[in-house]
Every structure is written in structure tokens, then in C-alpha cells.
Design a protein around this nucleic acid. Sequence first.
DNA 1: CTGAAAGCGCTAACAC
DNA 2: GTGTTAGCGCTTTCAG
Lengths: 326, 326
Amino acid sequence: MATIYDVAQLAGVSPATVSRVFNGVGVSDEKVAAVRQAAEQLRFTPNRTARTLRRQSSEVIALVIPDIENPYFTEMARGVEDVASEAGYSVVLCNSDAQVEKESTYLGIAIAEHMSGVIIAAASERTDLTAIRAAGRPVVAVDRGVGSDVDEVVMANRDAGRAAAESLIEAGYRRIAHIAGPENIETATERAEGWRRALQAHGAEADPELLRFSSFRVDGGREAMEALLALPEPPDAVVAGNNLIGVGAIQVLTERGLTPPRLGVAVVGSLPFTTLSPTAVTLVRLPARHMGVTAARMLLERIAGDAQPTRTVVLRGELQPASVLR
Amino acid sequence: MATIYDVAQLAGVSPATVSRVFNGVGVSDEKVAAVRQAAEQLRFTPNRTARTLRRQSSEVIALVIPDIENPYFTEMARGVEDVASEAGYSVVLCNSDAQVEKESTYLGIAIAEHMSGVIIAAASERTDLTAIRAAGRPVVAVDRGVGSDVDEVVMANRDAGRAAAESLIEAGYRRIAHIAGPENIETATERAEGWRRALQAHGAEADPELLRFSSFRVDGGREAMEALLALPEPPDAVVAGNNLIGVGAIQVLTERGLTPPRLGVAVVGSLPFTTLSPTAVTLVRLPARHMGVTAARMLLERIAGDAQPTRTVVLRGELQPASVLR
DNA sequence: CTGAAAGCGCTAACAC
DNA sequence: GTGTTAGCGCTTTCAG
């Protein structure tokens, strides 16, 4: 690998001049041309490691998510990536697997690798941001708040939960269950809260049996749905707490011949790879990509030195009611 | 951030000794203890950038994939990640978006950041590996071969295509179409070849109209399925070239009331988030995770200095025939 | 087993 | 505008 010294020698200038050419500061046109030509010839690529060591910062941001296999998070990742690469930053995607330990490891790497900032969808409420904050790195929390005082981009979860439940009520369902995510995750409890309020507001039955906390995964949705169907008095509709829970619940229903809308289903999130008729299920689509875009912009502002008080952006889901009714 | 000098001073040893403690070479027990204690106290984390600059290599591998939103690739990513992190490596996930330019950018970053190696699912046959190879970094190709002479882990695509088509033939379908991926991607053409052979072997109709090249995405599957149904003599079954094509095709079928098995469907790949009864569609499940695991192990061997001739590992799909027949 | 010292490749003062 | 030079924090000979 060629270095700036090789280029400098070939171009007949000093290493500093080569560096300047690659960093856009005042160099005379002839020298710029000479340097570029020499660099070309030697296939010179600036060594980012050396630059990072010297500058004490790198154009890399870390994106830490709890489930890389969930399309909701990968869609968000696309948003982050688009904004970041536009601004000359690369994104490294870290999968915490919803484990606080793995998450800490990645946060440690982000510090040790001098990454410029972190966007994180926290694994749980126990997520520990003290080290990364102490290192002075900007952090933006997405999807879920974290205890600390950092910028946040979250969804209007309560509203989403309420809209999903109300859509079902309006469609005439009377006994509406809710399969929520883990009880220690803010998004899950907020959506559940929205569901509860919708039922109360419409004088519908809010049987505690009808609320199930599970995992934000397909098998979580399956298990909870099975348990609900096994109830002495099963529900006639269900609100799924996220996309994967929705998939699991609908799988079970399909296997039992209860395909929506025979049993009403509303999902907080999208069903990206559904093979179901898109009109049979109510969706509250969450703008995942937009969340990523917003978070990335905020992070870049912070990296650029913006020191205003922390902000919280709340994004709204879009109701797409089922058009096929039972 | 504390450095080894701070730790050395506090522990009363030399910086070299601190370095040795953190790299597991012979240091007396007392000094090890002193250093560890000092490091703890100062919350010292080794600066990876400096280490990388000095060592000319970092414990990071790049995983370049064409579509981060495709569960097939994220599942593979999990496999890579598990093996890598076990071995103390981190994985940075790069989304080439099936564009050769983006892919080159990431490959350039991999070089400039001194990453130890690359696992790549090539964007197309035009993928250019010369720079990364010239830089002496080990490369493993996954899912699709690349022109160059590198280790490969691929699927038995021809067999998968054949098995999918044969399953449909055995179920009694007579006019079996195939929606393939892009014509310039090896996996697509090989699976199509398998489909063709199955039809020929069973004396079935191999109307060229029935073969459609599209994209490996949901909309590709949708468009091709619609075109097939618009044919004067539409097919009675279809082999989808990958998971997302399968989703798109089934979506269209569902909208037209042709839910499988009314029109037979076989998919090369899995339908991870399907809400369909799992027995209505034939699947040739591809071991994506295993592909990632294998590729990561091979790469790690190369990084460790293994210089044997390049290997190609072919992984076999698993047929899971539809159990509900028409 | 341990320490001194020389860089890895680059950038940023500081001179000229 | 341009060159000289001193590190960024770490590893790794080379002595001892």
C-alpha cells in the first residue's frame, strides 16, 4: 500500500502537501494536479486508521439494533445509511440480539474505534449509556427511549395502539385481545396502554386475560395467540404489538382456519412479506425508514458540534384499515 | 481516555508491559495484577485504532451483501456474526444495494480501514475484486461465485431449482412457470437451469414464455406473476427463484383468488414471515445461516494464514413439499 | 521477564 | 503556499 510519502516523492512535493490535497485546503493548482496524478499512478488510498488515530475521530457511526432479522429495523437501517453515506459517513451495523451484554460490547468497540456517534435502539431499559456518554460521543436513541438525556426519535406508540384497537372496534369486534412485546420495553407498554384506552373509551371489555406480554418475535406471537385461543372465552379480535408478533398470530389463525377477518387482526407495524390479501388486516404502518433518516440527521448535527438541549421527535403511524370486513 | 502510559505509570511498570498484559504474553503474576488493577481504576480500554495502525490489521471483517432487507441475507449475517464474535472479531455489515459502485466503495473502506477480510455476496458478475485482492486481504464469496479465484460457499442451485419443479410435477401440475432473478446473477440462471431440466426429464412442456427473469425482490415477483397470468395460456404452477419473488407471486395469486395450491407454488428459499398455512407451498429451504457460518470459518482460516488452494463448498437445500394438494 | 525506543501513516502547528 | 516536524496510542524488536 502506497503512503503519502510515496506520493509526495513521486509528485515532488512534501507529505503535508499531499495530505492537504486530500483534505481540500489551499494548494496551488499545479501541485494539486501533480499529486493527483501520482496518487492515481500508485493507486494510493488514504489510510483511514492513521487518519483516525491522528484526528481522534472517524467518519463512522454505529447503529445498534436488537434484531437484525426484523425488517422494521433493517428498513430503519436503510434510512440511516442513506443519510450517512450522503454525508460521507459509513455505518456499521451492530446486532445486540436484545442482550445488554452484547450491546455493551459494541458500545465499547464504538469508543475504542473512535466512531463519531451512535444510533441505538436499546435492548432493554437496563441499557447502559454512561461509558459512551462519558467518552463524549453523541448518541441518538431510536424506537425506544433510554434513561439518559439524549436525543430521541420514537413512534407515537400509544396512539398507534389506540388506532389499531379502535379500528377493530369500529369493524364490530367486541372482545379484543392484545399481544404486546416484552414488559420491560417502553414501546410494548405504551402500545398496550393505547389498546387499553381504546377499549375503555368505547366501553368495551378490558379483561386482563386479554393482555399478553410476549417477545417481539414470531414465536412470541404464536405462543400468545395459542394461549388466547385456549381461553374459556377466546377473543374475537387481536391487536399485535409489532410486525413479527402479527406474523406469528396470523400463522396460528391460518392453521386453525380462523383467517382474518374471521378473527379480526390489527398490527402495529407493517407486514412486509405477507402473502395475505393486503386488505384483510388492519395495519398501523410505522415510518421506520423515516425514523432512521431523522435520527441520522440529528446525529450528524451533534457530531458537527450542535449543543442545543436534547430533542425528542415523535413520529406518527399511518392507519390502513382492513377493507374486507367479516 | 486513559492510555497505556497512564496505566504504566500508575502500575509502576513500562508501557510495553501493559501492552503485553493485554496481549497475553509472558508477564510475571504480580505485574499482571498491578496492571489489571491500574487499568480497572483508570477505566482503560485499549485504543483499537492505534493497535490497528501498528499491527496493520484489525479484528474486523466486512460482510458485503446486496440487500439488507432480505431475510435470507440477514440470516446469513447472523451465522457470520456468531462465528466471528466467538473468535474475537467484529463484523461490519455493508449494504451494496446490488450496485457495483456502492460495493466498490465498501471494498475500498475495507482496505483503508485495514479490515482483516471480506465475505461478499456479489452485486453482479461485474463485481471487481482486484483492489481488495491486490491489498492481500482474504475474501470469501458467498451465495454467488465471483470471477476471481477465491474461496466460495454457494448453494446447490441447479438441484434446488430441479427439486422445486419436480415436486410440482409430482403433485400433478402440468404447465410450470419459473420466475427467476436477474439474468446476470449466477444463482438465478442456475436455478432456472434446474427448472428447465426437471421439465425436460419429465417430458413436460418447457414453453420459453414460462421463464421470466426479474429482480430478486417482491415487486419483481409480483410483476412477473401478473405477466404470467396474462398469458393466453397461463401456467398452472410456478417456481419462484427466491424467497422474495415467492412472496410477490403469492401476493398476486392471493389477490386473484388463486391461493396455492389452486395454482401450485414452489419456492427456492424460505418464507420466514409468511402468514400462509405452511403446508400449501413447496419450499426448498436454503441453509442461509449455515452458509454464513461456513464462510466465516473459512475466512478466519485464511486470516490465520492458511494458504491452501481455494475451495468451493456447495450447500444443499432441503425439500419440504406442500402437503396440501389441490 | 522487562524496559527503551522506533515506528505504523497521517495531520496540524509552526516556520519560512 | 509549502515544507518540517512532532506526535496520535500502540506493538515489537532489541538489549539487558
